[in-house]
Design a binder for these strands. Sequence first.
DNA 1: GTCTATAGTCGGATAGAC
DNA 2: GTCTATCCGACTATAGAC
Lengths: 231, 231
Amino acid sequence: MTKSNHKISPINSRSRGENTREALIEAALEIFGRDGYQAASTRSIADKAGANQALINYHFKGKEGLYHAVFEYIAEQMTQGMGQIAEDIRKSLETIENQSKAEQTAFAIASLEKIISRLVHMMNSNLTKHWSTNILREQQSPTAAFDIMNTGPMGRLFKLCTRLVAICKNIPAESEQARMLSLLIFGQVHVLRACRATLLSHMQWENFGEEQMQFAENLIYQNLRAILQTD
Amino acid sequence: MTKSNHKISPINSRSRGENTREALIEAALEIFGRDGYQAASTRSIADKAGANQALINYHFKGKEGLYHAVFEYIAEQMTQGMGQIAEDIRKSLETIENQSKAEQTAFAIASLEKIISRLVHMMNSNLTKHWSTNILREQQSPTAAFDIMNTGPMGRLFKLCTRLVAICKNIPAESEQARMLSLLIFGQVHVLRACRATLLSHMQWENFGEEQMQFAENLIYQNLRAILQTD
DNA sequence: GTCTATAGTCGGATAGAC
DNA sequence: GTCTATCCGACTATAGAC
């Protein structure tokens, strides 16, 4: 089979260039995640993508451009990963405004559980395996790449959680208490991914699969109810 | 002042070599933490330490040896940082065995609060500023360096917390529930350091100083009591 | 758009004088 | 123990053919 520079048939919605571009981004996501920005070599990324090293400069203007493209990709996937969940909750919030406090609280807790469940699964799926390391690195010393996510889906999700927490605790959604509480709740989910080595060692687990995830999730639900119950 | 290879006077407890060694470790802690293992150059480490680059090979057999020395240093400092707190709690645990459940629970919660307070402050002090990034990196893909801490002070502290949690919840200290709960509680402390960029952005804070620390700490205490109360 | 080849830079390690 | 000087490998980016 000989190589050709002709455009592929219109049956394929994507041009050859777009395929290469995406292959490079997915390879970069993995290699940047595994090795860090500096340790990752454009050679190894191109190899994994099955593309030529020089194409990184052609498509992304350089290593840094590719790095930013990776975070735009993550932000996109993050939005898709949360699916309709966040949107549905936002809509429902408007319709339950004139319900009783107890009903609103019940809805808020159920919504938080849905978000937590999705987060736990997202943060441990194979698809997102390499997000965490990339994001964690940016948390420590944020570059322009961090803003791409933070002003995007991540920030919006945090605002939503804060509103839900505020409903349960009967405090304003703008209060520092509501904000910090949503962060602390997220911390319980976050530790499962960020401290994976400690988790496995401390729990004496071989891996963190569906069963282990469910176990952790249920305990987080219990904690959530304990923390948010108004008394 | 001319350089000399003679041993310095016995009034100084340390030889010239030991001073160089420690300067290199402290510089390496910072540079490895900031740049990651690979991105950190032995040249920049030597520069910051005010030492010659070739001395890294002389003292540590190479870059990797220096990296391991850094984690031994962290483990040492970690033990010192917890001070007598952990030891005191372990001792007291033996003497309160025949007290009432309520008294034991009160002691366990007070102890956990002491540990949490110390952890929050340790994880945010200038002295330990560079630990986190080094440790977080090892959590994602553990090398031999991770074992140095995990089998040391970190593992012991987790076991202690698990015992305290088990007392409150009236469950065996070997149960997965007690282990996971102590991990989830730690997650609330951990998120304050590991998600620093998100924390600042979400809270709309400029920095995370003593005042902010106290605010977060108090909320963690409240959550702790809510989570561990037996009903 | 994709390729090969290479220029230019930097980092880890070592040899050997002091 | 500490220094200078240097070797050699690996990396990013670019030039230019196809």
